[in-house]
Design a protein around this nucleic acid. Structure first.
Lengths: 197, 197
DNA sequence: GGGGCAATGTCGCCACTGGTAACTCCCTCA
DNA sequence: TGAGGGAGTTACCAGTGGCGACATTGCCCC
């Protein structure tokens, strides 16, 4: 009897399938539900097959995290408008992403599993998001909407505030229902300190 | 043969011993090194004994996290000086704690293991830290060093900025060597927005 | 006093996880 | 055509969290 092709992932798409399956697991069962074995099973493959494409489970997790940052980057990139509006849009998109994908966001910033010093992928993807903020800040300074503080410092402040807010929201310290509201409030306070006057 | 007393933890101090052992494991082997079995072994007890004092491994972790917040609270409480100085002192103590106890801090804010909605302990301990900030903010507003924004909003901003900064520091996105410097920079920017003028 | 009794621990066991080693299959290419 | 290697598989291992049945101990109360 002619068996179906035994190697459906022959052309290297198993890697992508595993990342997709792992991401789905995170969404469905929260971060602790992510297991190399479950991801492999979901991809229709024995768990050892994953080791052909990832050194560790940690490497698989790192790939999921990197993909998460790519998604966050895409969401933030969609912000438009004048320089300061764009900066605010990025901030809102950031918080919206976190609220919409809490388990994924937690995985991305959990920090324990994917050590930034071991896996370069996620760190690079995160840097791209920060780059987006920097460019908006530069523009806002050029247009005179923000004072000329050191761009790196302001970017750090922005990243700190946004991540800190998301962290408090996702841990339940702040009500998720107020996320948009809180994002605006916090950014307004930051603006007050950065505004050109 | 006379066996040594089989129940060295009779008066309920096993719980405390387990938390201490677990905390030590986190410090020694980072968050992923914390295991219920290892903690029990370190306390000189079989691993199932731990279940007499904690429902889950998660409950043990939650206890470690709560204790971490207590330590953070104690460190922050030591800040003194005028209202605004005290607020800055709290901020510096916060960052110093994170840098000095990176693995513990990661566990405290990792978020995956100890869900705030399940374990009340850690959330309450965290709230106490925020309470410290609030009181300093209230004082600074009363003394006229800060403008009279909504205290809750300002507290959120403060907590966001501090946690965000620590998060970036511990993940390697910002150099730990500059932690004190960055803390001051970031807080100065925040102050600029909050200052009474 | 002595007898229950609950608290505290131990042992044995289970399912599951990450990881390794040895093997099979099948495609490619000299 | 046949050697080689990439991609998966099976079998296995140690370690982990968790459960249930049992032992021991000290305390409380008749």
């Amino acid at each position: 009897m002619a068996t179906l092709p035994r190697r459906p992932h022959d052309r290297g798409d198993l890697r992508a399938s595993l990342v997709t399956a792992a991401r789905a697991l995170v969404v469905a069962e929260d971060t602790e539900g992510l297991t190399l074995r479950k991801a492999a099973a979901a991809a229709g493959v024995s768990h050892t097959a994953a080791y052909r494409h990832f050194a560790d489970e940690a490497a698989l997790v790192a790939a999921v995290v990197a993909r998460g940052f790519d998604e966050l980057h895409a969401a933030a990139e969609a912000a438009s408008g004048g320089p300061l509006d764009r900066l605010h849009g990025i901030g809102r998109a950031y918080v919206e992403f976190a609220v919409a994908n809490p388990s994924l966001y937690r995985l991305m910033f959990g920090g324990e599993v994917p050590r930034r010093d071991v896996h370069a992928e996620p760190a690079a993807a995160e840097q791209r998001v920060h780059g987006l903020m920097s460019s908006a800040i530069v523009d806002a300074q050029a247009s005179g909407e923000l004072a000329g503080h050191d761009v790196a410092d302001v970017t750090v402040l922005m990243a700190c505030v946004l991540h800190g807010l998301c962290s408090l929201l996702l841990s339940g310290q702040l009500p998720v229902a107020r996320s948009a509201d809180l994002a605006d409030t916090v950014m307004a306070l930051v603006d007050a300190g950065l505004a050109a006057r």
